[in-house]
Structure formats: C-alpha cells, structure tokens
Computed example of a mutant assay.
Amino acid sequence: MTDESPRLLGPAEIRDLAELLDLTPTKKLGQNFVIDANTVRRIVRVAGVQPGETVVEVGPGLGSLTLGLTEVDATVIAVEIDKRLAAQLPDTVRALQPDAQLTVVRDDAMSIRSLPGEPVRLVANLPYNVSVPVLLHFLEHFPSIRSGLVMVQAEVGHRLAAVPGSKIYGSPSVKAAWYGTVKTSGNVSRQVFWPVPNVDSILVSFTRHAELPDTEKVRLATFEVVDAAFQQRRKMLRQSLIPVFGDTQHATAVLERAGVEPTMRGEALTMPDFHRIGLAALAND
C-alpha cells in the first residue's frame, strides 16, 4: 500500500481506539473486532462492492470493515447500537479517509425499520448471537438490498446455506431461501479478530430473488409451518404440525392439499414445498 492509499485499521489502532473509549469487548454484544487489513479487503472483494454503491453495515464496531468499504468509494450507512462506538466512528473514518461517505445510525439492528438511503448491499461482521435474526430482519424490511455478504459463526453460516436432506438443514435455511440464494464463500481465521473468539467464522453470500415468492401474509403462514416442522424435526409432518393445525387430521388434510406426503419430515422439504403448505394453510382457514 502506497503512502497515498487510504489507511485501514490494524491491531495497534484497534487497541488504541478501545483504550480511548474505555471499551472492553463483551460476549453479550458479540464484539470481536477484525484487526487484519487483508481480511477486510477480502470481505469487500468477495461481497462485490462497487464504487458509488450504497452499502449498509450492521455493527461497525471500531470501523475496520467500514474503512474497507469506504476505501473502494462505497457510500456506507452504518447501524450501531453502542453509543460510544457510534459517536467515535465518524471521527475514526474522517481521520483515515477524509473524503469517505459515511452516515452512522444509532439504532438496534433487530428492530430498525428505516434508513437514510436505499442500500443495494448488506456487508457486515454480524454478532454471533443475533446473526440469523438480523439478516432476516434486513431482508424483510429493506427490499432495496439486492445482495450482500455477512461474516458469521461457521456453524450458523453452514446452517444458512444448507440444502434439504442434510442434518444441519433447518428453519434458518428455509427462511433465508425465501428471500434469495445463499452460499458459503470462504472461511475466516480466528486469528484476525481481537479478542480471539473460541469459534470459527465463515463468509456467507446471498443474492435476493428478483421477486419474492409471495405476499407477506403467505410468508408468515409459511414461516409458522417451518418453525413447527423443525421444532420437532424427527417427527413426521402430520405430527410436528399439530401446534399449527390443531390435530393430525387437519394437518394431514392441509399437507395433502399442498401435495406433500404427511409422513415426510421437515428436513426433506424444499422452500417451495413449505410455500405450498403455507398457501394450503390459508386456504384451510
């Protein structure tokens, strides 16, 4: 990197910022900060971020990934719940990249409903404990997001990208598939974080469907079926769906209307299969 190149944060800068803010990373908030510039640039590259695009970042922390996004001339909307981090981030970015386009929104990523712009990508190092609900929340409420990449706990990432029939296929797999195509895009070493986590991380890419499968009403009905099917995943659908339909007789009738064998288990069904059950459930009301 030449002297004229924008600077990114390294281990020393991360620790200095943490000391400045009197910040002790907490497991509760999933605070593991990326300290390796090469990893940051790799994330931005794999995410496919283009100059001039508006990107939303969730949980920017001390700004490692934020600076990687602004380095390629993306306009960044950063959503940060921690007031100290939210207040410091503009100063950090301004000091290292004075011309960067950054807006910081102090809000809870689990409940935020509006943004000052229409991001076309989501790129984030998501806190391990809320990564799936945050991803699904943003896909639900911000339709301008067409694609993106998130770094999550490896176990969670594999679950998100799992296919029917695999042991790790479950509710997150189906719900993510409702919105788009999901795939894993490479592992991330524990050593690029401070503090070093006790779990492995993975990159997960997604591309939104050109059109959602159906209406919000149908999605809610479908997701209710999905949750019930995997709550008792070893049971046949006619049994696992009793909480939704009341008894095996009604569950069987809905499944047969959807063209799904009542003796199958949830782990064998595709997202379109669940969608048909959701439609049949509404027709049954």
Rank of each mutant, 00 (worst) to 15 (best):
Val163Arg: 15
Pro143Ala: 15
Gly170Trp: 09
Ser173Trp: 05
Ala161Ile: 01
Asn187Gly: 15
Gly157Leu: 11
Val163Asn: 10
His141Tyr: 14
Leu139Glu: 07
Ser144Asn: 01
Leu160Cys: 08
Leu136Tyr: 09
Val150Glu: 08
Pro133Thr: 08
Val188Met: 05
Ser147Met: 04
Thr181Glu: 14
Val163Pro: 00
Leu149Ala: 11
His137Ile: 13
His137Glu: 09
Tyr179Pro: 03
Val163Met: 09
Thr184Glu: 15
Ser144Arg: 03
Ala177Glu: 11
Ile145Val: 15
Thr181Ala: 12
Lys175Glu: 10
Ser171Asp: 07
Asn187Ile: 10
Tyr179Asp: 07
Leu149Asp: 11
Gly148Met: 05
Ser144His: 03
Thr181Asn: 10
Tyr169Gln: 05
Val174Trp: 01
Met151Arg: 08
Tyr169Ile: 07
Ala176Arg: 07
Trp178Gln: 05
Pro143Thr: 15
Ala154Tyr: 02
Phe142Arg: 06
Phe142Lys: 02
Val150Cys: 09
Leu135His: 02
Gly165Val: 10
Gly148Lys: 03
Leu135Pro: 00
Thr181Tyr: 06
Leu136Trp: 11
Lys175Asn: 07
Ser185His: 12
His158Tyr: 12
Val188Pro: 00
Gly148Cys: 06
Val132Arg: 01
Met151Tyr: 07
His137Gly: 06
Val132Thr: 15
Pro164His: 03
Val134Gln: 03
Leu160Arg: 02
Gly157Thr: 11
Ala176Thr: 10
Pro172Ser: 14
Ala154Thr: 08
Glu140Met: 09
Val152Ser: 06
Ser185Gly: 10
Gly186Thr: 10
Phe138Tyr: 13
Gly170Asn: 09
Thr184Pro: 04
Ala176Cys: 14
Ser147His: 01
Val132Leu: 00
Met151Lys: 10
Ser185Thr: 14
Gly157Cys: 06
Gly170Leu: 12
His141Ser: 09
Pro172Leu: 13
Val163Asp: 12
Pro133Phe: 05
Gly165Ser: 09
Ser171Asn: 05
Ser166Leu: 02
Thr184Asp: 12
Lys183Tyr: 05
Pro133Val: 08
Leu139Ala: 09
Ser144Lys: 01
Thr184Met: 13
Ile168Thr: 11
His158Glu: 14
Met151Ala: 10
Ile168Tyr: 07
Pro133His: 05
Lys175Met: 14
Tyr169Ser: 04
Ser185Trp: 03
Phe138Lys: 05
Lys183Gly: 11
Glu155Thr: 12
Glu155Asp: 12
Phe142Tyr: 04
Val150His: 03
Ser166Phe: 00
His141Asn: 15
Asn187Leu: 14
Val152Ile: 13
Pro164Ser: 04
Val174Asn: 01
Val182Leu: 06
Glu140Val: 04
Glu155Ile: 14
Thr181His: 11
Leu160Lys: 02
Ile145Gly: 04
Lys167Pro: 00
Ala177Asp: 13
Thr184Arg: 13
Gly165Pro: 03
Ser171Thr: 15
Pro164Asn: 03
Ala176His: 06
Gly165Phe: 07
Ser171Cys: 10
Lys175Gly: 01
Phe138Ala: 07
Pro133Gly: 02
Ser171Met: 09
Lys183Trp: 14
Leu135Asn: 01
His141Lys: 13
Ala161Glu: 01
Ser173His: 03
Ile145Gln: 04
Ala162Cys: 05
